[in-house]
């Protein structure tokens, strides 16, 4: 298990500053949530920290090493990401076998067949799925493949960018259970972006509330029901989510 630290991360797109000195400390083995409205910069934090997006200032550390000091190969093996939309994040003309074998080939890892089967088993899919294409799978199965792809290089840290918001509640429950099980089995550190406070409350011990590219407040999950938020925006967000759930 390995901690993640983000220090003074700032990012601008042209004239617009989208991240203002974001600081985060995520403990080893923790599941840390990032919540906020669309456009608040939560996905950008993940994209910057994983160097999918460069041109930002500040530092992102995985354990004791800055992501910038890692080689690409090293970075990919310690940090992986699961994206929001399983319909968009898998190549439509690549079979599951291609999707899973490519990272193994690049990193020159042996016994590919066994590893691929193990990865599918980990996410609860039968080995026959290796020969399927994305259009032959349901949304939940595709997201499982996307998770298997992230796991096949045995990363220590997994970034989850709205992993269930494109899925039905029934399928969301399966994927959330899977993510929880994998974390306890393999000791991953998760940073999870979501706009659904109920999902964050279910998954994360702590979470940060973001607005306009700033972290407004970092809260424990107990602060949601215990009214522990101090800033007005965090209170508004929590209030709206509770109202939405309880207005019933």
């Amino acid at each position: 298990m390995i901690p993640v630290t983000i220090e003074q991360m700032s990012m601008r797109f042209g004239a617009v500053k989208v991240l203002h000195d974001v600081n985060l400390t995520v403990q080893a083995g923790e599941c840390f949530g990032l919540i906020g409205e669309s456009g608040s910069g939560k996905s950008t934090v993940l994209r910057c920290a994983s160097l999918l997006q460069d041109g930002w200032r500040g530092r992102a550390m995985i354990g004791d090493t800055s992501v910038r000091d890692m080689s690409v190969a090293q970075r990919c093996r310690s940090l992986q990401m699961v994206f929001q939309d399983p319909y968009g994040s898998l190549h439509p003309r690549h079979s599951v076998r291609t999707v899973l074998s490519e990272p193994l080939k690049i990193h020159a890892i042996g016994d590919a067949p066994d590893r691929m089967r193990a990865a599918l088993r980990d996410v609860g899919l039968p080995a026959e799925f290796l020969d399927r294409y994305p259009h032959q799978m349901s949304g939940g199965q595709r997201q499982r493949v996307a998770i298997a792809r992230a796991l096949i290089l045995d990363p220590k840290v997994v970034f989850l960018d709205e992993p269930t918001s494109a899925l039905d509640v029934s399928v969301q429950a399966e994927i959330l259970n899977l993510l929880m099980r994998l974390r306890s089995e393999k000791g991953f550190t998760y940073i999870m972006v979501s706009h659904d406070l109920a999902v964050v409350d279910h998954m994360c011990e702590r979470f940060a509330v973001m607005q306009h590219g700033r972290i407004v407040e970092v809260l424990d999950r107990d602060a949601i029901t215990g009214a522990g938020a101090k800033t007005s925006y965090a209170r508004e967000l929590i209030g709206a989510s509770l109202a939405y759930e309880n207005a019933l």
Binding site: V169, A173, E174, D201, T225, S241
Partner: peptide, 20 residues
């Protein structure tokens, strides 16, 4: 009933969610 149970709730038990 399965759909209702699969929905995570704020302040709910954090155990595995019932799956349909």
């Amino acid at each position: 009933r399965g759909l209702l149970a699969a929905q995570p709730r704020i302040g709910g038990g954090r155990g595995p969610l019932p799956v349909l």
